[in-house]
Simulated scan of single mutants.
Amino acid sequence: MMKFTKQDFIFLVGGIIIYVVDIGVDFWVASKYFCQGQYSWSILILSFRGLSSLITQVFSYEWFKNDWEGTDTGKLKWIFLVHLFQCGIFIRYWFALKYGCQAAFKQNSGGDASETDPPNFIQKQVIDVVTDINMLRVFKTFLETTPQLFVQIYILMEHSKNNFCQYAAIFMSFCGISISTVDYQVSLRKSLPDKDEFHVLSKLVYLFYKLFTITSWILSISLITLLSVRTSVILLIFLWICGFTWTLKQHTTFCKSMKMEYLYRTVVGIILIFTFFNIKGRKTNYCISIYYATHTVVTLGILLVYMFWKPSVIKGIDFIIVSILTVLSLVLGIIFLAVYYRRFHPTAYCRPQACSDEVDGEAEQKDRVKTSRFQNFIMQ
């Protein structure tokens, strides 16, 4: 297991600041739309915020219950109350700051201690806590930040009224997507012993791969929505059904209860609308090729429809700019995707999960859930 360093602690503090600022920007944007009489946009922005907050609080509380199983029930009641008021993430950040400060500043880095020694124990504590936070941030990114980014870009295309409020929201959305995807990969490498260290260059390549492919897809969906909101909704629902069905066939085992497992699969289905994730940690060259080939075909099809149909909902110069950005983002995203999997993707995967009908496999799976929840989470 890799160390939690001072640099990691600084990034943790930065993540807290961005999280708080993001909340403020959401309410600021919603209030601006409300004051302008655009109540539907205001409600939509707040709905994404409320839905993502509710789901992340549910997962956070369930993880606390699993981790504190057999401990004082009074603590769990207090934790439940905090999550009921949608503040569970701040409890997790408090634990992360507490353990992170001890691991990064108050411990000697020398020596090869065993896993039971206090230094390694603190290191494992802080990495586990930060990993849980990054899991929740991935949920938040694709339940709230990415849909909000899509809405903001659609509003700019439809009304062509640019203001600082909208640009601030779009900027915060891009920051949220970028930081959460990179932090997710960093946590993955730190949590799993058979993963290589995530160096600066590999972080940048991975960041650009995700950012460009997501940007291209969001622009494409925005163009569809300009043509027909109903068609856009039908497409998104169809994509979610495909993603949800794929998670069912993968037989994910992330949660202890089946209710939470189905909620998890529902969330993963939403994530798969916007980007590809390998939910079982297995080699998926075939699946990822089909995924992005489909996105490429749909994106090019949308641009061809606009090129030949020339609908009046978008001006010629606007279409040229949007189409160039869409194609450029798609090409760059595919290039960074190929470079990442060719040069920077870890060749060592997690231990293959045994079949569920083997007794030893079941016991081993339970041990993995207890020791590292991240081993059953979505992996890239």
Rank of each mutant, 00 (worst) to 15 (best):
L149K: 00
M135F: 09
P147S: 00
L136H: 12
T145M: 03
D128V: 07
D132F: 09
V130D: 07
D132G: 08
V130Y: 07
V151L: 11
N134Q: 13
Q152F: 15
M157D: 05
Q148G: 02
F139R: 03
T141F: 00
I153V: 12
I153K: 03
V129C: 12
Q148T: 04
V126A: 03
E158W: 13
V129K: 05
R137I: 10
T141C: 09
V138A: 14
D132Y: 07
I155E: 10
E158Y: 14
T146V: 09
F150I: 07
V130P: 07
F139Y: 14
T145S: 04
E158I: 13
D132H: 10
L149H: 00
R137E: 06
H159M: 13
Y154G: 09
N134A: 11
L149T: 01
H159S: 15
L156N: 02
T146F: 00
E144L: 10
T145F: 05
Q152W: 14
L149Q: 01
V129E: 10
F142N: 01
T146C: 04
F150Y: 07
F150V: 07
T141L: 04
L156G: 02
V129Y: 04
E158F: 14
E158V: 15
V130F: 08
Y154N: 07
M157T: 08
L143F: 04
V151A: 05
Y154M: 06
T141H: 01
L149C: 02
Q148L: 05
F142W: 13
D132I: 07
I153D: 00
L136G: 06
L143K: 02
T146D: 03
N134L: 07
M135S: 07
Q152T: 15
I153T: 03
T141G: 02
I153Y: 05
D128T: 13
I155G: 06
V130T: 11
M157P: 06
I133V: 14
I155L: 10
R137G: 06
M157W: 09
F150K: 06
I153L: 09
Q148I: 03
R137K: 14
K140D: 12
I153A: 05
D128P: 06
D128F: 11
V126P: 01
V138K: 12
V138W: 01
N134V: 10
K140T: 11
D128H: 10
I153C: 03
I127T: 10
V129P: 02
P147V: 00
Y154E: 04
T146G: 01
T146W: 00
F142A: 00
V138Q: 13
F142G: 01
